[in-house]
Amino acid sequence: MTEALKVTGLSHSFGDLEVLKDLDITVQKGEFVSIVGPSGSGKSTLFHLVGGVHTPTAGAIEINGQKAKRGLIGYMPQQPALMPWRTIEKNVVLAQEIKGKADIAAAREWLSKVGLDGFADKYPHQLSGGMQQRVAFLRALLSDQELLCLDEPFSALDAMTRLEMHRWLLDIWEANRRAVLFVTHNIEEALLLSDTVYVFSSRPATVIEKVTVPFGRPRRDDVVDDPDFVKLRRRLTDLLTGSPR
C-alpha cells in the first residue's frame, strides 16, 4: 500500500541557512500526523517543499506514490491568505477553480455545516479571525486532495475558541477520513488530535522523537486528563524545551 506522504532523507537550505536536515516522515492514508517544533525550526518550509514551491536540496518526497509537485495537496497556510475581493463562498472554491470546476452548491452546504451560514456572500474582512481560519480550512478540505497539510491552523485563536475548533476538526475528520499533516507549537493539541506526533529540534530541524499516540478514536476532549496523556505531554515538553527529565 502506498503512503499518503513519504518523506525520506529530506534536507533543505536557503543559501547558507540550513533549515531541514535528513528528515524521514510518513503519513499513512487516513492517518492524522502532527509535527511539533520550536518557532523558526522549518515546519512551514517543509510544507512548501511538499507543496512543490521549493525544490529540496536533498532527499525525496512522494505523495500517494507520486513525486511531489504542485497541485497534489490540500493546503491551509499559516495565515488564512483569503482574497479580500472575493466573497467567502468564492474563496472556498478557489482551489477547485484552479483544478477545473467550482462547486458553489457544495461550498454553501459546507459553510453552513461549519457554522458560517449567512456568511457565504460576505467578504473576508467582515469575519473574525477564527471564522477566516474555518474558511481557509474548508478551502483546503474542498480541494478534494487525499493529503491535507494544515500549518498551525489554530495558533491565532484564544484557548476557548481553540477547544471548540479541536472538537470541530475531529468531527469533520472522523466523518471524512483523510491523511492529515498538521503543524503546531502546542503539544497538547498535537496529542489530542493525532495518531502520530513528530517532534522537531530547533533549526536545522531533525526528528528528535516519533511518538505513536496510544488513545483510541473517536477521541474525547477529556483524554487530556488521562494520567498516560499527562505523562506523555510532560515527556514531549521536556524534549522540546531541552530540560532534563
Binding site: 510544507f47 512548501h48 507543496g51 512543490g52 514551491v53 504542485r70 497541485g71 497534489l72 495537496i73 493546503y75 497556510p77 495565515q79 491568505a81 483569503l82 482574497m83 475581493w85 472575493r86 478557489l94 482551489a95 477553480e97 484552479i98 483544478k99 480541494s143
Partner: peptide, 28 residues
C-alpha cells in the same frame, strides 16, 4: 500578496491563473 501566491501555486495554479485570479484583481 505573496502568501496567496504561494497558496495558489501549491494548489497547482499556472501563470495565467496567477495573473487573472490574483495579480489583476489585486491591481484594480
Amino acid at each position: 500578496d505573496a502568501l496567496i501566491a504561494d497558496y495558489m501555486l501549491m494548489s497547482g495554479a499556472n501563470r495565467r491563473q496567477l495573473f487573472t485570479k490574483l495579480q489583476w484583481p489585486h491591481a484594480l
